[in-house]
């Protein structure tokens, strides 16, 4: 179990407003524009690794960003599914960002990225087995102890299936988040990628989600490679993913949602337009829910 974090009163940090609405993933080509024009974006998610620096412009930019926007951290280096011990040095760097700024939460992925110190710089899947579950649970618990709060773990896109797998992806995820007592980040594009590549049943996946643990939703675009699709984050969100998002938001109303775009990064306006589509889906779904209730 994680130890309770130092309260905001004790460390004289203001209590942050809860995150809500549709945010965007902050990427370096947009930082200057965002800081100078300050567009109305409900929140920003930062790729933690891009903001770990001893000095220079990066910490200064982070200070300015945190001054004007609610911020969450998304990391790729915790390697929570690895049989290696959790990288304490890396976690401490993340914790330092949390100590220095108002960071709403930290998320990482249900995968491993390194083994025996060698980095893959990719989100590598593991077989869905009891041994993998226990590895995740141990590492997430350790990470939460150091971070001082619950973290969010994200379902990953997958291009590999193992003979050793004993259960479905959603049953695997449920077991981990329940035993580790952590939160869940649902990436809709990853779910769709796994549906196309591995025939994952999206209805089954959505119906079995532990809704109380889902604290964030990710949306992104994929790249079509013919016999498979790649979670490339280099395109607009596809119609199929918007449809899945519409289904998801019905059971997870008002869940903070994020637009991710990492390659061939377009103008900021394109991302903001994607965010406005997500906003309108949320509003329509909420209106419909209210109508049904009354």
């Amino acid at each position: 179990m994680f130890k309770q974090a130092i309260s905001h009163e004790v460390c004289n940090k203001p209590i942050p407003e809860p995150i809500s609405g549709v945010g965007i993933g902050l990427r370096s080509p947009h930082i200057h524009q965002i800081l100078s024009e300050r567009p109305a974006i409900p929140w920003l998610e930062l790729l933690a690794d891009n903001h770990i620096a001893d000095g220079g412009l990066i910490p200064a930019q982070l200070n300015a960003i945190c001054e004007h926007y609610p911020v969450t951290l998304h990391s790729v280096g915790l390697s929570l599914g690895s049989t290696d011990p959790v990288n304490i040095n890396y976690l401490n760097k993340l914790k330092q960002l949390k100590n220095d700024h108002t960071i709403h939460w930290l998320s990482d992925h249900l995968c491993f990225t390194s083994h025996n110190g060698i980095q893959s710089h990719d989100l590598l899947p593991v077989p869905y087995t009891e041994q993998s579950i226990q590895t995740f649970v141990d590492n997430i618990s350790r990470a939460q102890d150091i971070w001082g709060d619950k973290i969010l773990v994200e379902n990953v896109s997958n291009y590999m299936s193992f003979n050793a797998s004993e259960m479905s992806e959603i049953d695997f995820i449920n077991e981990i988040v329940s035993r580790a007592d952590c939160h869940l980040l649902v990436d809709v594009n990853n779910l769709y990628v796994n549906h196309i590549n591995h025939a994952v049943d999206t209805t089954d996946f959505i119906s079995k989600l532990p809704t109380k643990r889902v604290k964030e939703i990710h949306l992104a675009g994929y790249e079509d490679h013919g016999n498979y699709i790649l979670d490339a984050h280099n395109n607009p969100v596809s119609d199929s993913v918007w449809q899945l998002y519409t289904q998801l938001i019905q059971i997870l109303p008002n869940t903070p949602t994020l637009i991710e775009w990492d390659n061939n990064i377009p103008d900021l306006d394109v991302l903001l337009n994607e965010a406005s589509i997500a906003e309108s889906i949320c509003h329509q779904t909420n209106r419909h829910e209210q109508y049904v209730i009354t």
Binding site: S120, H121, D122, L124, Y159, M160, S161, F162, N163, A164, N197, H198, A199, N227, Y228, L230
Partner: peptide, 20 residues
């Protein structure tokens, strides 16, 4: 160790090799 399905095992591995 990999399942033979829509994406053949060699391709499953090469997607990750190309990503890196």
């Amino acid at each position: 160790e990999l399942k033979t399905e829509k994406i053949p095992p060699e391709l499953q591995l090469s997607i990750y090799q190309r990503n890196l």
